[in-house]
Design a protein around this nucleic acid. Structure first.
Ligand code: FES
Ligand code: FES
Lengths: 143, 143
DNA sequence: CATAAAAAGGATAATAAGGTCTTTTAATCT
DNA sequence: AGATTAAAAGACCTTATTATCCTTTTTATG
């Protein structure tokens, strides 16, 4: 469904956001431990997220990553489109160059329903709401 | 969503099935032209589908591929699991090694809903029904 | 100001996915 | 039987993704 980058990226952002709420900055080695991801690769992904203003990074001693208060409202869809582009929202399920209701592929109508559900789910899910849900039940970011 | 193999494979099977209903065998070069896919690669994919008894192949002059009458009832889910395995039906959206409601990831409940929709769609869609739908409207397999 | 901590950036390596080519096997038709 | 046609099989190549390593830059603090 998502690329590895995107999977790690989502887990990382969620972890950082959660820690930011508790006023903690977290560094890459902590992040990759807590979400069980390859450290250097995760650093690369976080660079992208930083450049796209999804997370904030601070260099130097006591530096690390945070999600700023006003960024808690961003939707998971934004994280996904930074890391995986938007082909998942727009592409044809059978790989045709363009998905278009005017000349649909055999799966078009059935597929766009699922694709749109995914899109809506990601667009309606804010980082904040994910974090809130995590306090209601034992939720994990690594296994 | 699906791998390239799976996209080409689904398109190929649908094309072959459609031709089989019209009593035509089709060879690889026709298939790859009609679904706009790389020929040699498509041949590889069809080998897999043949080994898994989804399509039937006949060598030699007037050979080619067909979908036999009694195979018209197979579900798209079978084609997908032959080509892409079943991680798409079972895997965690955030890439955890196992998806498990007992220790869910932050997206678990929202994600399994979409994943199950996809699964059901594929399990409820037979090859025959896809072909039938194609006679009702202008549907395309290449672009 | 030196030092240490941390992210950023560049280069490279490993693996997987996507794709091609050549040889072998089998069927059909003179 | 021999020529021809077509798929099967396997070796090989290419590209993209995933992952690591190492150097540079930034910055807080003693
Ligand atoms: S054309 Fe294939 S999903 Fe729309
Ligand atoms: S644990 Fe992640 S989707 Fe179920």
């Amino acid at each position: 469904m998502f690329s590895k980058s995107c999977e790690y990226g989502l887990r990382a952002v969620i972890f950082i956001a959660q820690q930011s709420i508790e006023k903690n900055k977290v560094n890459i080695s902590t992040i990759s431990e807590e979400i069980n991801s390859p450290q250097a690769f995760t650093a690369k992904i976080l660079q992208q997220l930083t450049r796209n203003n999804i997370v904030k990074s601070v260099k130097g001693p006591h530096g690390g990553f945070t999600v700023e208060e006003h960024k808690m409202d961003i939707r998971l869809s934004e994280v996904v489109s930074v890391l995986d582009g938007d082909s998942i929202y727009k592409g044809c399920g059978l790989g045709l160059k363009q998905c278009d209701a005017n000349s649909p592929c055999p799966l078009h109508y059935k597929f766009i329903e699922i694709r749109d559900n995914l899109k809506n789910m990601l667009e309606n899910t804010s980082l904040k709401s994910v974090i809130n849900d995590m306090y209601l039940e034992e939720i994990i970011l690594k296994r």
